[in-house]
Nucleic acid binder design. Structure first.
Lengths: 365, 365
DNA sequence: GTCAGGGTTTACAACGTTGCACACAACGTT
DNA sequence: AACGTTGTGTGCAACGTTGTAAACCCTGAC
């Protein structure tokens, strides 16, 4: 039922190949022929069969984005940016949810989508470095988001997690807080991928630089990065007698769970406890109180990742050297650290005082 | 470089077709042949080329889910459920963001993904009934989520929006509220797709049934369903002197914006104003205060939509009669309407008193 | 011992597209 | 007038897979 090149060719009285040439904008087609064919193409509503086209070319025009959870707004926002960037290359994005499961991450890397995608952008969560290396299929180029936990032939894009956590901690220290808890520690094991370790390191560095010693009692462990785990971690920490005057959360959903737990205990934010997260998801601008956060340049991360794939998929020989790019970030101070007054007029909820902190532009190679 | 049937065939000393038969589990293959071929398949790491396979079959094994915004947690959650359901059919889901733009919705319906997808599940936002009909391509089966705004050959899955809004309003009335505002009205125009109109109707029905007259002054208009529009709408409503003791929001993101606006004005929820939303997104369980909401059975919606596609794609003649299925819903009362005490112990944040309200199971046809 | 009938395997064509090599015409040059 | 050049159009093969139909081999029955 669908219209094929052959159908157009017959109607236009030319060969199939000529129609193909017109459709693909091949130069050596006489103007009148082109016009005639073009007219028939439109009249019949011809659409190229991507499947067949790609069988020849070996390219599908689809890239996959594998993230742990779309429900985490950070990944939803990131997905939006990736789609936008991919669009400019004429690519379609296929989003895969790994649910943070090692098995599904392995499947994806092992070429689960074989022949269905031309490239893969992946945000690993459960897989460790060795597993990543072991699973990799190497048939399509891969860009990993997050820490460089693997020496394999994949590009990396990430913010400097040590610096991001350090900047957030510095922000809290700058407000005079001295007992700064941490929520998001993940004792070695899987579900780590290095990010938690690095962020903890940044927290320690900032404390030590301020002459403070990191206290184990102020470290909140989590299994996962969802709101409920933030809630549970801070609750446990308080139950065992911890009395922080500030909390650094390793992402915003943890922080939102923390805000909720503090509210349930009648602790006032930021008067009693200041709270800051990382990711700067949309929700931070609307929570009560509005959540301060470290804002990674999500747009840049997405664009860089897509561009890297484009380069490896490009016609000119694929560059074999894996690259490692750092995206910029900035600390956005909102009510949960500086209070309503300092954070700006409540009726202008979107802004908040923006303290530019660090934003090293991506450095190729 | 990738392994083809031919490569396996040569190594195993059989014909290409035999390998194909083994891979596809065709019955009439001798046990020893099967074992030998299977061994080679595994040894060489053969993966079928989906593209080529689908060129023959005409099926791609991919369905598209088109939603306005992934950043809206409702759609992110829905996407998760759709992926899960699709997985059971061995399908991959391609998520498309239309950004709520009529143009992009038109593109999607017009077969933008021609030959790349076998079916489409779409949640229209900007397109009106006529436009939907005009754009449709009819080359792949379509399931529309949301109101039945179109008589074309598409299946529909939705909750009963009139009843859902009425149930929410009844909940507020049951708490003794008498001045119930509405946030989410969309004056005819596009960006409507009927949902807002129906929900408004439900609000009116509930009020009239309680002997109250709907007041125009308590209707908050929005352009869109994001948090900022909820914020703006309730602010405008209060600024022009409206003094509601409750607010029904047409979705949860609007409601979260409303909560934020009320907090900025020092109004206490639910003491001064009770607030309820629709969608029951995860975030409602963590906001301060926790947000009451009408919970549609998202899992059922997703499964039903996928099953409908499966039926139309199945081998047995495609049923030409478009079907219309209503999914169930229930009112979930949390702090924003019944207060912290009644909503349950704050340390058990996930539950909340669940008032089962209505849940008509889907009725085929 | 031949033949029917079943299980097993194979050759071939086709899905819709594009790369390649070539045919042909028109033109300008020698 | 013969030649090369350039521009335009076409036929054929191939991408990797599977449906169809037919070939093959074996068993059991007459």
């Amino acid at each position: 039922m669908p219209v094929r090149l052959k159908d157009v060719a017959e109607r236009a009285g030319v060969s199939v190949k000529t129609v193909s040439n017109v459709v693909n904008g091949y130069v050596h087609v006489a103007a009148d022929t082109r016009a005639r064919v073009q007219a028939v193409v439109e009249e019949m509503g011809y659409r190229p069969n991507v499947t067949a086209r790609n069988l020849r070319s070996g390219r599908v025009g689809v890239i996959a984005l594998a993230v742990p959870e779309l429900e985490n707004p950070y990944f939803a926002e990131l997905a939006g940016h990736v789609m936008e960037a991919a669009d400019e290359h004429g690519w379609t994005v296929l989003v895969d949810q790994t649910d943070g499961l090692a098995e599904r991450e392995r499947d994806v890397l092992a070429g689960f989508r074989h022949h269905l995608i031309d490239g893969l952008i992946m945000s690993p969560f459960a897989l460790t470095a060795e597993e990543l290396g072991a699973s990799a299929d190497h048939t399509v180029p891969v860009v990993l988001l997050g820490e460089k936990v693997w020496d394999g032939p994949a590009d990396h894009v990430a913010i400097d997690n040590v610096e991001a956590a350090r900047a957030a901690t510095d922000h809290l220290l700058g407000l005079g807080r001295r007992s700064i808890a941490l929520v998001g520690h993940q004792p070695d094991g899987p579900g780590d991928s290095g990010v938690a370790r690095l962020r903890r390191h940044g927290w320690e560095l900032a404390l030590r630089a301020a002459g403070l010693e990191p206290e184990e009692a102020l470290v909140g462990e989590v299994e996962d990065f969802g709101r409920e785990h933030g809630y549970a971690a801070i609750s446990a920490l308080l139950d065992r007698g911890g009395r922080p005057d500030a909390v650094l959360c390793f992402n915003d959903t943890l922080a939102l769970g923390v805000l909720r737990a503090l509210a349930d205990r009648g602790l006032e934010v930021p008067v009693d406890v200041a709270v800051i997260g990382i990711d700067d998801v949309e929700e931070t601008r609307w929570s009560v109180p509005r959540l301060s956060s470290v804002a990674p340049d999500k747009r840049a991360i997405a664009r860089t990742a897509v561009t890297m794939l484009a380069e490896r998929l490009g016609p000119d020989g694929r560059d074999p050297a894996p690259r490692d790019v750092r995206a910029g970030f900035e600390v956005v101070a909102r009510e949960s650290t500086v209070g309503a007054a300092a954070a700006g007029h409540p009726h202008v909820p979107v802004s908040g005082a923006r303290a530019r902190r660090s934003a090293r532009p991506g450095t190729g190679r």
